[in-house]
Design a protein around this nucleic acid. Structure first.
Lengths: 171, 171
DNA sequence: TCATGTCTTGCGGATTTCGCAGCCATGGGC
DNA sequence: GCCCATGGCTGCGAAATCCGCAAGACATGA
């Protein structure tokens, strides 16, 4: 239906509301589908359909829509440390003025894997994946701290990843 | 024929060593496969094989092994905020004594999605996904701060997720 | 040199994916 | 109330993919 977020604006009232960032509200069936794919991203549509009570084609359409809308992505995830990226760090950033330009600049950096705005003694948290110490130092010291608006940063170098899950739906 | 591209032959002894955490060292082909699956976790094996210079069956076996070894997982990822989990936070924990028991306890909590040991003013960073404020407060105040060895915690409530990528292999 | 384990390849059969109608329910316009 | 447009679901072939198996090739180690 809303083929695009913008396409059919007249058809607004449909599902109660949208969250402020524009993501559509999900019904129980879509949540169940996501839950299935969180357990195994390659699970066949037919199996998912059996689990959630839908036909194979219907599941396929829903999954495609969820992917198109950017609500979910199906990807391989690893511990970067096991794949040759020897240095990772979480960087807490404090900003003066508008957060958005800083967040955008961080988002644009390929070494930055994760950016989130927070409430607390940091305004932004950014996770960084690098090849080695030199690379990490360069990103933090030269690139991030040089951004206009950045007041200060604090780094937490990763020593060991203990847990990494995406199964919150299944508890 | 394809095997010439990379191959395990004239090069060094294949999986020379293991990284200290026990994960096997990956060769260039496996990295290329992972990279493909980071772009699309459902990409067919044949397409991956064409991209990395391997047969379909070879890719299939490698992927299966990578999954079995826990080196990678293929899953659906979302922004929890769009899927009904209204409160997320990163919690920095400082510990006295051994880190491991605390890290293990955090790992065992279903609300904790991500646990990493760090160097810096926090010993452990943990990401928490909750349904609402009460739930979040309960986890942080009652469960985490009650763990033996936890000296103090600091919380960063998520306001907006700006970036979430798993494509570091492709830059 | 020979045995061994690992990796690779090629091939059918079973399964899954894909695209295409057709059907039903909902909601807007008149 | 009626009609039409729209979105979503189902069912069905055709094409592509996945899966298991057996045989061949190569490096390693005795």
């Amino acid at each position: 239906m809303h083929s695009g977020v913008v396409a059919s604006r007249s058809a607004e009232p449909r599902d109660s509301r949208e969250s402020r960032n524009g993501s559509p509200q999900l019904d129980a069936v879509s949540l169940a589908i996501i839950e299935q794919l969180q357990q195994d991203g390659r699970r066949p549509y037919a199996a998912i359909g059996k689990a959630v009570g839908l036909s194979e084609a219907a599941v396929r359409q829903r999954v495609q829509k969820l992917l198109d809308q950017g609500v979910m992505q199906i990807v391989a995830v690893t511990d970067p440390l096991t794949v040759g990226f020897r240095r990772q760090a979480m960087v807490g950033v404090t900003v003066e003025g508008d957060l958005d330009p800083v967040a955008e600049a961080l988002t644009a950096m390929s070494e930055v894997e994760y950016v989130v705005m927070t409430a607390g003694s940091f305004d932004i948290l950014a996770e960084i994946v690098c090849e080695d110490d030199d690379h990490l130092l360069d990103v933090i010291n030269k690139r991030i701290r040089a951004l206009p608006g950045v007041r200060s940063t604090e780094s937490f170098v990763y020593l060991k990843l203990k847990k990494q899950t995406y199964m919150w739906g299944t508890r």
